[in-house]
């Protein structure tokens, strides 16, 4: 069992969900797979279908339209699956927290495992967050 857990931390397939973000966080996530940072070294891949996902990267404020879809997508992901909140919007709704269509922050909707603050977070910060996540998963079992 431990073997499989180790394999999981060495091959994280990431599904990227943008719930009404301003697109800067998404660009910073894509920066992580460019030659300068190249997270494929650690087996991290961006994949197209949520059925293959090990981690959901959620960016942006979750607005009324996106919240039910986000729940649906999380239900479709095969477990074990972790949720990573990227950017100030996903963490605390940033400047949209009094907005009429942003009822609650992400962690009231989904169980968030790692918070990566920043507006937008630097690629280094995202990688740091993933490292913390890996350490957390390894210690949990």
């Amino acid at each position: 069992m431990d073997f499989r857990l180790k394999a999981l931390t060495k091959s994280i397939w990431v599904f990227h969900i943008s719930t009404a973000s301003c697109n800067n966080c998404d660009i910073e996530i894509l920066d992580c797979i460019t030659p300068r940072f190249d997270v494929e070294r650690f087996g991290i891949q961006l994949i197209g279908s949520v059925r293959h996902a090990d981690a959901l990267l959620v960016t942006g404020v979750v607005n009324r339209k996106a919240a039910p879809l986000l729940k649906k997508v999380y239900a479709q992901a095969p477990k074990p699956c972790v949720v990573v909140a990227v950017g100030q919007c996903a963490l605390s709704q940033n400047m949209f927290r009094f907005g009429y269509n942003c009822p609650e922050p992400l962690d009231k909707i989904l169980p968030v495992d790692v918070y990566i603050p920043g507006c937008p977070p630097k690629p280094e910060a995202i990688i740091d967050g993933i490292v913390k996540l890996v350490n957390k998963v390894r210690q949990k079992k």
Partner: peptide, 13 residues
């Protein structure tokens, strides 16, 4: 190999 091992431990939806 890691990918295959990991996938075999995941839930089948």
């Amino acid at each position: 190999f890691t990918d295959i091992i990991k996938l075999s431990g995941k839930e089948t939806v």
